[in-house]
Computed example of a mutant assay.
Amino acid sequence: MISAIIPIPESKAVLIFTEECVYRSESNGLEVLNQLSAAQCFPDYGIMSACLRSLKCFGRYKFPWICPYFTLFPIESPERTTWINPLMVYCLQVKNNIYYAKMENGLNLVLPLQKKAFLKRADVACSALATVRRDLFRFSVKSHSPTDYIDSTTPFYRHLLLKSSSLQQFPLQPGAFSRHYAKAHFLHHYDKLDQEPHMIDWRRW
Rank of each mutant, 00 (worst) to 15 (best):
S3L: 01
A4P: 02
A4M: 05
I5T: 06
P9I: 01
P9E: 12
V14D: 05
L15C: 02
F17H: 13
E20L: 05
C21Y: 12
Y23W: 13
N28A: 03
N28L: 04
E31I: 04
V32Y: 14
V32R: 05
N34S: 09
Q35I: 00
Q35K: 13
L36I: 13
Q40V: 00
I47R: 07
M48Q: 13
M48W: 03
S49N: 09
L52G: 08
R53A: 14
R53Y: 13
S54E: 15
S54I: 00
L55Q: 06
F58Q: 04
G59A: 08
Y61Q: 14
Y61T: 14
K62H: 15
F70T: 10
F70A: 09
F70E: 13
L72W: 03
L72M: 12
F73R: 04
P74H: 07
I75H: 01
E76G: 14
E76I: 00
P78D: 11
R80H: 13
R80C: 10
N85T: 08
P86F: 08
V89T: 10
Y90H: 15
K95I: 01
N97R: 15
I98R: 12
Y99P: 03
Y99K: 01
Y100Q: 05
Y100V: 04
K102P: 00
K102M: 11
E104H: 01
E104C: 14
N105W: 03
N105C: 11
P112A: 06
L113D: 03
L113F: 11
A117M: 07
A117V: 09
K120H: 14
K120D: 08
R121H: 15
A122M: 03
D123G: 12
A130K: 11
T131L: 07
T131M: 08
V132S: 02
R133P: 02
R134N: 04
F137N: 12
H144E: 13
P146C: 09
T147S: 07
Y149K: 12
Y149E: 05
I150P: 00
T153E: 15
T154Q: 04
P155I: 01
F156S: 08
Y157G: 04
R158H: 02
L161H: 05
L161Q: 04
L162Q: 11
L162K: 14
K163N: 14
S165T: 08
L167E: 05
Q169A: 14
Q169K: 14
Q169F: 03
F170E: 05
Q173M: 13
P174F: 08
G175D: 09
F177Q: 02
R179K: 15
L187T: 02
H188S: 12
H189K: 02
H189V: 00
H189D: 10
Y190G: 00
D191M: 10
D194T: 11
P197M: 08
P197N: 09
D201A: 09
